[in-house]
Design a protein around this nucleic acid. Structure first.
Length: 582
RNA sequence: GCGCCCGUAGCUCAGCUGGAUAGAGCAGCGGACUUCUAAUCCGCAGGUCGCAGGUUCGAAUCCUGCCGGGCGUGCCA
C-alpha cells in the first residue's frame, strides 16, 4: 500500500485494524478504534486506549496494549510504538508526517480537498425569513449555520439542496395586508421597504389589542388571499413579496449566502389540499374545536393542527406539503431543518405525524436547533433577547455596519497603508459576525458582547484570518504561490521536524469534518481553525521561514503554503473569507 | 403544572462513542516589536466540573433525584 495516497489518520487506523485482525481474526471488525492526541505530548503523537480490547484478548488493558504493540509493524510513517500502561502510543516520523499532510493539502486530496461523492442526498432548509418583515438578527443564526452546513455537506461528498423556505404565506400576511391598507405609504416603501413594512406591522400588533375589528379584517384578508382568486389581496401580496425578495438580496449578498432553491411557503399553496386528504385517508385526523388536527394522546403533547377552525391552513400543513414535495423531487436521504430551538415542539409534532403515517423516512428528518441571540442588559445585569430600547428588533445591517466600522478603525491604526481598506473592512467585519455565530455549539445562546465583538482579539474570526494574512505575506515575499510551491524542486520534509504540533493538528481536519457532519455542528470545524491559527502564530514566532538555508526555506515555505490553504478551505466552508492582507 | 434544553475558572466557552495530571479566549498581573503583519506571542494566577446518590477497573461525560436558569406548552411562524 502506498502511504502517499492516504491521509495519515486513516493510515494509522488501518494499521491498528490489521494488528487487531492478526490477534483476533474477524472479531476485530466490531471493535472501535479511537486514536486521539494525548494530553501529554511526551506520551506520543497519537494514543490508543486499549480498554475495549482487553476482554476480547482475554487479558487486562495493559497487557492488551503490549500485545498490540508487538503486532504493529513499524514502517516509514510510524517512528515508534510504545505501550504505556493501558495505552498504546504512537510517534510518527516527522518527515513522513509533513510529507503526507502537506502534499495532501496542496494537492487538494481528500480529506483536505473535496471528498468523493457518497451518493447521499441532503436537503437543508435554512434562513427562511418572513416576507414583509425585516431581516433581523434572529434570522442570522439559521442563515449562517445553514449556509455552513450546506457547504460542509457538499465538501464531504453529499448532493445538497439548500432551500430558503421563505415565510411568504400564512395568517400573518392578512395582518400585513390590513396594516398596509391602514398606514401604508408608497414613498416610505420605496425608500426603505423592510423598515416601512416592519413599522406598520409593529403598529398593527400594538393597535390590534385596542381595535379587535383589525383582527377580524386580517383573518378575512388571509381567507381571501388563500381563496385562490386573483383579487386585491393577491395583488398586494405579490407586490410586497417581490419587494421583500429584492430587499433580502442585501443581507444575503453581504453574508455571501447562496441557496439552491427559493421556494417559500406559498409554493405549496396548491399542494396542501392533497396533504390534508392524505392524512384524512390514513385515518389519523380528528376534528377538535372545529379544527382539523392530529392528536397524540399517548405522548401527552398538544395536537398538530392542519386546518384552523376558520378553514385556513397553518404552517404545519405547509411544512408537511414541503416535506412530501422534497422527498418526491429530490429523493433525499436526509432532510435538515435549521430552525431555532423554540420550535422543537413543532418538529416533534411533525415527526409524530410522519410516524403515524408510517412514513419510512421519518427518522431521516431532523430538526437542527440552535439557541437564541442575547444582548446584555446593563440595567438589569442580565442577558436578554435582542431588542433595542424602543422595543424594535435589531436589524442585521446595523450590526454588520458596526462590525465593519470597528474593523476600519483597527486597520487605520495598525495597517494604514493597506490597499483596498474599504473592501477588506467589509470582508473582515462581516466575517467576525459569522464566525462569532459559529464559534460555540449550536444549542448555546449566542451572547452578543459589543466590547468583545469589536476587539477582534483572541478566539475570533479576525484572529484566524490574521494568521492567514501573515502566511500570505510570507509567500508573497518569497515570490511563490500555494500552487507553485511544490514545483520548486524536491523538498526535504525531514527539515520540518519542528512543525510536528501544527502538522498533527492539521491532520485532524478529516476526522473533524466527519464529526461536524455527524453532529451537524459547524463549531467543531471553527474550533479546529482556531487551533490551527494559534499554532501557526506560535510557530512563526520561533521559526523564521525566509532564511539563509535554501533547503530549509523551501521546506518551510511548503508548510506555510499548506497552512494557508487549509485555513482558506476551512474558513471557506464556514462562510468566512481569508483575505490575503489585512 | 407538564415537556424539552442548559449548568465546567470572575466572564464567555471547549472537552469526541466514559479513558492518562479538566483546556482555551476575555478580564487581571509580568514579559517580548531596528528581524517574514504585535489583530500576535511567552509566562503567572485562576476549578468541590450546580448538589446528592448510582453504574463502572475508571465519570465533567452514562442513569436517578433535587436545585438554579432558559425555551415551549391548540388554532403565529
Amino acid at each position: 500500500m502506498k502511504t502517499e495516497t492516504l491521509d495519515p489518520n486513516t493510515y494509522l487506523e488501518n494499521i491498528v485494524r490489521s494488528a487487531l485482525k492478526e490477534l483476533l481474526g474477524t472479531k476485530a471488525d466490531q471493535l472501535p478504534i479511537s486514536l486521539d492526541r494525548p494530553r501529554q505530548p511526551e506520551h506520543g503523537d497519537l494514543g490508543l486506549p486499549c480498554f475495549p480490547y482487553a476482554k476480547a484478548l482475554g487479558t487486562n488493558p495493559a497487557e492488551a496494549a503490549s500485545m498490540l504493540a508487538e503486532h504493529i509493524h513499524s514502517d516509514q510513517v510510524i517512528a515508534e510504538v510504545r505501550a504505556l500502561g493501558p495505552f498504546l502510543n504512537f510517534k510518527l516520523d516527522r518527515g513522513k508526517l509533513a510529507e503526507n499532510v502537506i502534499q495532501g493539502i496542496l494537492e487538494g486530496r481528500p480529506p483536505f480537498g473535496p471528498w468523493p461523492s457518497n451518493d447521499l442526498c441532503v436537503v437543508i432548509d435554512f434562513s427562511s425569513p418572513n416576507i414583509a418583515k425585516p431581516f433581523h438578527l434572529g434570522h442570522l443564526r439559521s442563515t449562517v449555520i445553514g449556509a455552513a452546513l450546506r457547504r460542509l455537506y457538499r465538501f464531504t461528498g453529499h448532493e445538497v439542496h439548500g432551500i430558503n423556505h421563505l415565510g411568504d404565506w400564512g395568517s400573518q400576511f392578512g395582518k400585513i395586508i390590513v396594516a398596509w391598507r391602514e398606514w401604508g405609504d408608497e414613498e416610505a416603501l420605496v425608500r426603505d421597504p423592510m423598515r416601512h413594512l416592519f413599522e406598520i406591522y409593529v403598529r398593527y400588533q400594538k393597535e390590534e389589542k385596542e381595535r379587535p375589528e383589525l383582527k377580524e379584517r386580517a383573518a378575512e384578508a388571509f381567507r381571501r388571499l388563500e381563496s385562490g382568486e386573483d383579487n386585491d389581496e393577491r395583488a398586494l401580496w405579490r407586490k410586497l413579496r417581490d419587494i421583500s425578495l429584492k430587499a433580502f438580496q442585501g443581507p444575503y449578498g453581504r453574508l455571501r449566502v447562496e441557496f439552491d432553491h427559493v421556494t417559500g411557503e406559498s409554493f405549496y399553496e396548491d399542494k396542501m389540499e392533497a396533504v390534508v386528504e392524505k392524512l384524512e385517508d390514513a385515518g389519523i385526523t380528528t376534528i377538535s374545536d372545529g379544527a382539523l388536527v392530529v392528536e397524540f394522546p399517548e405522548q401527552k403533547i398538544p395536537p398538530c393542527i392542519l386546518r384552523k377552525s376558520d378553514g385556513t391552513t397553518i404552517y404545519a400543513t405547509r411544512d408537511l406539503a414541503a416535506l412530501f414535495y422534497r422527498r418526491e423531487t429530490y429523493k433525499f436521504d436526509k432532510a435538515l431543518y435549521v430552525v431555532g430551538s423554540e420550535q422543537k415542539l413543532h418538529f416533534r409534532q411533525l415527526a409524530l405525524v410522519l410516524e403515524k403515517l408510517g412514513w419510512p423516512q421519518a427518522k431521516d428528518v431532523q430538526h437542527i436547533d440552535f439557541g437564541l441571540i442575547l444582548f446584555f442588559n446593563e440595567e438589569k445585569g442580565r442577558w436578554e433577547k435582542g431588542k433595542t430600547r424602543s422595543g424594535n428588533a435589531i436589524f442585521l445591517d446595523e450590526v454588520l455596519d458596526e462590525a465593519v466600522a470597528g474593523v476600519r478603525k483597527i486597520i487605520e491604526k495598525k495597517n494604514p497603508d493597506l490597499p483596498d481598506k474599504e473592501a477588506i473592512s467589509e470582508e473582515v467585519g462581516v466575517s467576525a459576525i459569522i464566525f462569532n455565530d459559529l464559534k460555540n455549539g449550536r444549542i448555546k445562546d449566542v451572547k452578543f458582547d459589543w466590547k468583545e465583538m469589536l476587539s477582534f482579539e483572541g478566539e475570533t474570526g479576525p484572529y484566524v484570518q490574521y494568521a492567514g494574512a501573515r502566511l500570505s505575506s510570507i509567500l508573497r515575499k518569497a515570490g511563490v504561490s500555494i500552487d507553485s510551491v511544490l514545483e520548486e524542486g524536491e523538498i526535504n520534509f525531514d527539515l520540518l521536524e519542528d512543525a510536528g504540533t501544527v502538522l498533527l493538528t492539521m491532520m485532524e481536519f478529516g476526522p473533524t469534518l466527519k464529526r461536524a457532519v455527524e453532529k451537524n455542528e459547524p463549531s467543531v470545524l471553527t474550533s479546529l481553525m482556531i487551533r490551527i491559527a494559534s499554532e501557526i502564530h506560535s510557530y512563526l514566532r520561533d521559526h523564521r521561514v525566509l532564511g539563509d538555508d535554501p533547503e530549509r526555506t523551501k521546506a518551510r515555505l511548503a508548510l506555510v503554503a499548506a497552512s494557508r490553504k487549509i485555513l482558506q478551505t476551512g474558513l471557506g466552508i464556514l462562510g468566512v473569507s481569508a483575505p490575503e492582507q489585512m
